[in-house]
């Protein structure tokens, strides 16, 4: 046995089972990690560099922290931050509760036509944006279906311009978001529910627990990992909200419903492009989401 081999053997014997498993784990996560570093962190690093520069189009120069102080005076950006938080606080809880409720109904073995119900509830998130924005705008137009119904039932005496008023425009966006993304979240909860042993329910039922008790004492705690996933995803999605703002309300009326991502897109691709400033604003979104996600991970992501 060569000297080298001997040494290897020594090292090998030192490796405990724990260590071996840990190394195996590193190999499992390696490809994904490398790809994220190359395809996300590298461009993000470039964007960070860009956020310290300013200028028009390709004519950029070093600006230090100028972009970050400048944004404090940017009324449209401040408005967009407020809008995003309005959406976040109202939409995310409603949507997640709705999704869990529907998922547990859909998971009930007694439910008939399960497959059909599932696909019908999934339908909205498969609908391309074009169709859904045309439909929602026509639903809420002054002469749209919604106004017609309200007028016929005598709830309104005069048609209301839902997209023309700041608060109602934001509410239309929230309704649209709930409509579109509830089905998406149901998919994850349905998957998560498969790991819950049905006999647990049986046992609890024998003890005479009500549906609500069962839900809060069994379903919710066992779904905790999925709830963490979907809430981080939804917070991230809402703070990066783009499509609805662009297509449903065009940010209007008078920027009352514009989102941060919509504004960033305008700064890069609609207005005279200022990539430095746009990149700086992007990092604000990153920090906001990261902060919220960190709190959640700390609170929820604990192993028993």
């Amino acid at each position: 046995m060569s000297h080298k081999k001997q040494k290897q053997m020594q090292i090998k014997s030192k490796l405990t089972v724990e260590n071996k498993l840990s190394i195996t784990g590193w190999f499992f996560i390696l490809p994904a990690t490398l790809l994220i570093f190359a395809m996300s962190f590298y461009p993000m690093f470039k964007a960070l560099y860009m956020s310290f520069r300013t200028g028009i189009g390709v004519n950029m120069e070093w600006a230090g922290l100028y972009n970050f102080t400048r944004m404090l005076k940017d009324k449209i950006f401040m408005q967009s931050v407020r809008n995003n938080f309005f959406y976040l606080i109202i939409q995310v809880p409603i949507m997640l509760v709705l999704a869990i409720t529907l998922a547990s109904i859909l998971n009930n073995p007694k439910l008939k036509y399960k497959g059909l119900f599932r696909i019908l509830l999934f339908l909205p998130c498969a609908t391309p944006l074009v169709a859904y924005s045309v439909i929602f705008r026509s639903l809420f137009a002054i002469d749209g279906y919604f106004n017609t119904i309200l007028l016929n039932f005598g709830i309104l005496s005069k048609a209301y311009n839902f997209l023309g008023h700041p608060t109602s425009a934001k509410i239309v966006i929230i309704i649209a978001l709930i409509w579109r993304w509830t089905g998406y979240n149901i998919v994850f909860y349905l998957a998560g529910l498969q790991n819950i042993d049905p006999s647990i329910y049986e046992a609890v039922k024998l003890e005479g627990a009500s549906k609500f008790q069962t839900f809060f004492s069994i379903t919710a705690p066992l779904l905790k990992p999925m709830i963490l996933l979907t809430s981080i995803m939804s917070i991230n999605g809402t703070l990066q909200l783009f499509d609805e703002s662009v297509n449903l309300t065009a940010g209007g009326p008078a920027n009352a419903s514009i989102t941060m991502s919509h504004y960033i897109y305008n700064l890069s691709f609609k207005y005279v492009p200022n990539f430095g400033y746009a990149a700086a604003l992007s990092y604000v979104i990153l920090l906001l989401v990261a902060f919220l996600a960190l709190i959640q991970m700390k609170v929820v992501d604990v192993r028993d």
Partner: peptide, 30 residues
């Protein structure tokens, strides 16, 4: 891998990787 073989370092790396989804795509497109 992140869950079954989890340890302090992998948990930290995972939290760090999460950052990658938090920046608007428009910023990294170029």
């Amino acid at each position: 891998g992140f869950e079954i073989y989890h340890d302090k370092h992998k948990d930290r790396l995972f939290s760090f990787l999460l950052l990658a989804m938090m920046i608007p795509f428009a910023a990294v497109m170029i």
